[in-house]
């Protein structure tokens, strides 16, 4: 593991290659994970009451979709 550091000149190691390769390996797999999650969330939503009071959810919505689509937040923080 870490003993490699002493065997190889650290400054010539490039972490970029690994970041490319992992994406190649993940290609396709991520699609499945994302799809599973969508269905899972639908199942959860079916059993859960729609809650909109949470300030974190409101801010998430602003960050992800912009402010115009957000309802006026309620009074409770």
């Amino acid at each position: 593991m870490n003993h490699n550091i002493f065997l190889k000149p650290l400054m010539y190691l490039d972490p970029g290659s690994g970041s490319f390769i992992i994406q190649m390996l993940l290609a396709g797999v991520l699609g499945i994970a994302v799809a599973v999650r969508i269905y899972w969330k639908k199942i959860i939503a079916f059993f859960k009451r729609n809650k909109t009071g949470n300030i974190q959810d409101q801010v998430d919505e602003m960050d992800e979709y912009g402010e115009h689509e957000v309802d006026q937040p309620d009074e409770k923080m």
Partner: peptide, 30 residues
Amino acid sequence: SQKQYADKAQFAAKGKGEFSRKDLVNLFES
């Protein structure tokens, strides 16, 4: 993966497949 391929830049440069637009969208979503 970074550790594994840290000294194998030429391997990455060659590439071993296509990363489609759909893969990219899924990556952002993930």
